[in-house]
């Protein structure tokens, strides 16, 4: 699906990356093909959610966008420049255990700043302010092993945002959390993303999570077949359960269900 309204993006979001995939095929490192002929765009500053059954190549897609996996065929680009390797502009958020366990929460958040050669004193204050924004003030000195799963994901979110990326690629970041923590994290994410211009590609297999977070939802299927659904009035809690949202939900479930009938993708 090509994007038609890049210019309509809000001014505050102009700094986000424009990510585009043009007839992209991807394979696992062992050579097994997983995605074929996928064409998909993420407009600057938009939140694109990718849903699909497990083993569908959602994570592989994010790794390719992060520059960790070369494409087997097709063109993959960020702001029209081909993606050839990782870049601090495109941050990847993992499902769990991505924090360095020997670094405290603060030192984990300082890591991207240190890579960007921010002065030491500055690093610390910026890390602390990011930790405060995700609700972890006072936990700066804790090691990841002594934080709960939800808190670790907050630290990871702070670490990602501290690096000031122009695109954030999130790989089921709340998939390992219990339902309550998950809901709290979704609200937190929506809140902190409001203040950043970054483009977000968010992978999940939870349709309600997708509807709560995304501007648009791409349902990934077999052989590059996919359906893109626009979320009516994104991130507006008042629309929950309204007929338009229920209709969008129905479309997504139907697209997922259609895939089930056509076999594994």
């Amino acid at each position: 699906m090509t994007l038609t309204d890049v210019s309509a993006a809000p001014a505050a979001r102009r700094n986000g990356l424009h990510l585009s995939l043009d007839r992209v095929s991807l394979a696992y490192p062992d050579g097994a093909p997983v995605i074929r002929d996928l064409t998909l765009d993420a407009a600057p500053g938009e939140i694109l959610v990718v849903v699909g059954p497990s083993g569908c190549g959602k994570s592989t897609l994010l790794r390719a966008l992060a520059g960790l996996l070369p494409v087997a065929a097709g063109r993959i680009a960020a702001d029209r420049a081909p993606i050839t390797g990782p870049s601090p502009d495109r941050a990847l958020v993992f499902q769990d255990d991505a924090l360095l366990p020997w670094r405290t929460a603060r030192r984990n958040v300082e890591l991207p700043l240190s890579i960007r050669r921010v002065a030491r004193a500055d690093r610390r204050s910026r890390a602390d302010s990011w930790l405060a924004r995700v609700g972890l003030a006072g936990q700066e000195h804790r090691l990841p092993a002594y934080l709960s799963g939800g808190m670790r994901q907050r630290v990871q979110l702070a670490r990602t945002l501290a690096g000031g990326p122009r695109a954030i690629l999130m790989d089921e970041p709340f998939g390992a959390l219990d339902a309550q923590t998950r809901a709290a994290m979704q609200r937190l994410l929506v809140e902190v993303l409001r203040g950043t211009p970054a483009t977000v590609v968010f992978v999940t297999h939870d349709v309600d999570e997708a509807l709560f977070i995304g501007d648009r939802i791409a349902v990934l299927g077999a052989d590059g077949a996919h359906t893109v659904v626009d979320v009516p009035q994104p991130r507006d809690p008042a629309t929950r359960g309204t007929p338009v949202v229920r209709a969008a939900r129905g479309t997504i479930l139907a697209a997922l269900g259609a895939d089930d009938r056509s076999g594994p993708c």
């Binding site: 790794r63 992060a66 520059g67 960790l68 990782p86 870049s87 601090p88 495109r90 941050a91 990847l92 993992f94 255990d97 991505a98 360095l100 890591l111 991207p112 890579i115 960007r116 690096g163 690629l169």
Partner: peptide, 11 residues
């Protein structure tokens, strides 16, 4: 995952 994280931070 640790290496991937650091590389996507530009390390």
């Amino acid at each position: 995952v640790w290496e991937d994280a650091v590389r996507t931070m530009g390390g």
